[in-house]
Amino acid sequence: MSDRTVTTTVLTQVAARILLIPIFVVAIGIMIKGYVDIGDGFSAGVIASLGVALQVMVFGPEELTRLPVIQRAPKGTFLGLLIALLTAFVPAVRGQPLMTHWPPAGEAAIHFGTVEFITAVAFDVGVFLVVFGFGVGVTATLARAQERKSSMAGLFSRPGDAGEAGERS
């Protein structure tokens, strides 16, 4: 705990907090516009989870418990996988090949501005959730492990090295 308060200044804290929102916006933008331009649900997921990782680095793992979205993110991995699976397998129930997207090839889709509502986007949302959940979950686990380690420093180190263990910032 103490190292972190030393290494993170108020400035970084504020910067990190402010950065979170644009990061999320960029992520969502990339995901939705993925079909038109570079980027997709995957990149969006990574960007968003990097944003969370930044928060954790600056504010510590308890930050994760503060935002409900982030708190539930690990479960979101499986939700995302489920969504993706549904877009893949629901057509099969209707007798179509797997992953037949709706609306069918060539037909017009419902537009909302420049955003098209097609099932491929749902698939992309699934991908986003999986990646985001992964990123957040791993970051959180690492942060918790780090915390646990500083509280039991030296437990796993070689005899004689106990004093040195745990340093590195």
């Binding site: 079909y35 570079i38 090839a105 097609i118």
Partner: peptide, 8 residues
């Protein structure tokens, strides 16, 4: 397929 980025 309603997309303009072929890779995506």
């Amino acid at each position: 397929a309603h997309g303009y980025d072929v890779v995506t």
